[in-house]
């Protein structure tokens, strides 16, 4: 098709082409991201967690933290707490996508209700002696972390609080001989007398 030579030349040394030609409209969205905590009440049945996680991976949503456990065993209900980030439009999508799943009862955006408490538990192992050991204990006390295991050269601390507090504690333990950390992820609940 010689008549298209004009195009071909343009193509040759990609003057205007900073993205590959595509059948899709490749647009970037520049809305700022927000972090939201979602509480999701689901039927506790095989595969339900895979469905939720698959939704996030399949649609490219972020999971910052995911906590799940059965909360009402007679009714086979589990509560999943998800901390996610995205533009407001994406957050809205996530909620609707979760809500339309067959085994999902309710989705509550704890961040929008603005009246929720979030807690996470971490176990933090620190190894060392001398001043480091003393300093670790002192800091643990300041953070109200408890010692739940001790040897002559190590401690395991248990700490609860919001995620920021836990991260701060872990950062402080780093120079004092931090070995490893196990975190539960965030659990959230609304304030006041009403349930979700």
């Amino acid at each position: 098709m010689p008549a298209f030579a004009g195009m071909t030349t343009e193509n040759d040394e990609g003057t205007t082409m900073n993205q590959p030609a595509s059948a899709y409209f490749l647009e970037e969205r520049h809305d700022p991201n927000e972090t939201h905590t979602l509480s999701v009440l689901v039927q506790n049945e095989p595969g339900v967690l895979a469905r939720v996680i698959g939704l996030f991976s399949g649609r490219g949503y972020n999971i910052e933290s995911l906590t799940v456990s059965e909360t009402e065993s007679q009714k086979h209900l589990s509560r999943i707490t998800i901390v996610t980030t995205g533009t407001p439009m994406v957050i809205e999508q996530i909620k609707h996508q979760l809500d339309r799943m067959v085994p999902v009862y309710r989705v509550v955006d704890m961040t929008i209700t603005g009246r929720s408490i979030e807690r996470e538990l971490a176990m933090v192992k620190v190894r060392g002696g001398g001043d480091h050991r003393v300093e670790a204990l002192r800091l643990a006390d300041a953070f109200r972390a408890r010692v739940i295991d001790a040897t002559i050269e190590s401690f395991v601390f248990e700490i609860t609080g919001n995620s920021a507090k836990i991260s701060q504690f872990i950062d402080l333990m780093r120079p004092l001989g931090l070995v490893e950390v196990s975190r539960t992820g965030v659990a959230a609940i609304g304030r006041g007398p009403e349930g979700m």
Binding site: A3, F4, M7, E10, Q19, A21, F25, E27
Partner: peptide, 16 residues
């Protein structure tokens, strides 16, 4: 026309 088509798609390339 071939020219118009070429032009239309060339302009769009930055975004395509």
């Amino acid at each position: 026309t071939d020219e118009a088509t070429a032009a239309a798609f060339a302009g769009g390339k930055a975004l395509v």
